[in-house]
């Protein structure tokens, strides 16, 4: 079992990149006794420009807070995909929306219809949670039911949002089996 996972959720502001990182960290720390740290970077605009969150999950103490060598990058927008695609090595998993034009990369590239699945589930804004489902299924960096608990906790008291996000997460888990 891998000791430390370094994950980047990237896209544009408003896509729920911080929420995806928060749910992953909450699953790891709150329900599995692991350590996790999340940092984020974004512009002064509230929406529409490049944004990312770095989430590190580890069974060890985490010193430095930012991802130094990503094990997985999730890219939900072309600007994010293009930022990382060149620089990743063959040990990195690059999960991205299949509407983004694929470029050559050393990374292990996996395109999924993330936005389309989110739309089918009920809301395109749950793309982040679909992507989280894909990541968790492929890497097993946390247990699926830990994320389910984290989602229920995050949206406690908001039945509709809990259901939408659980559906999105499950759809992500299901689609990842196709690769």
């Amino acid at each position: 079992m891998k000791e430390t996972w370094q994950v980047i959720f990237s896209g544009v502001g408003g896509q729920g990149l911080m929420l995806a990182g928060t749910l992953l960290g909450s699953a790891a720390t709150g329900y599995e006794g692991k350590n996790a740290v999340m940092t984020s970077a974004y512009g002064v605009e509230s929406r529409g420009t490049f944004a990312k969150s770095d989430c590190i999950v580890s069974t060890q103490e985490i010193d430095y807070l930012e991802v130094m060598a990503a094990d997985a990058v999730i890219a939900l927008a072309p600007v994010a995909y293009q930022k990382y695609v060149d620089s990743l090595g063959e040990d990195t998993l690059l999960i991205y929306d299949d509407a983004i034009e694929t470029l050559p990369s050393k990374a292990r590239q996996l395109a999924f219809p993330i936005a389309k699945i989110a739309k089918d589930v009920g809301n395109i804004s749950s793309s982040n949670i679909v992507a989280l489902g894909i990541l968790v299924k492929i890497t097993a960096l946390v247990k699926e039911h830990s994320v389910v608990k984290a989602i229920i906790e995050e949206f406690w008291g908001k039945e509709k949002l809990i259901n939408l996000n659980l559906e999105a997460f499950k759809a992500g888990l299901a689609i990842s089996g196709s690769k």
Binding site: T39, S40, I62
Partner: peptide, 9 residues
């Protein structure tokens, strides 16, 4: 900003 905005257990 880093410690203020970072998340951690």
């Amino acid at each position: 900003e880093i410690v203020g905005h970072m998340r951690e257990g």
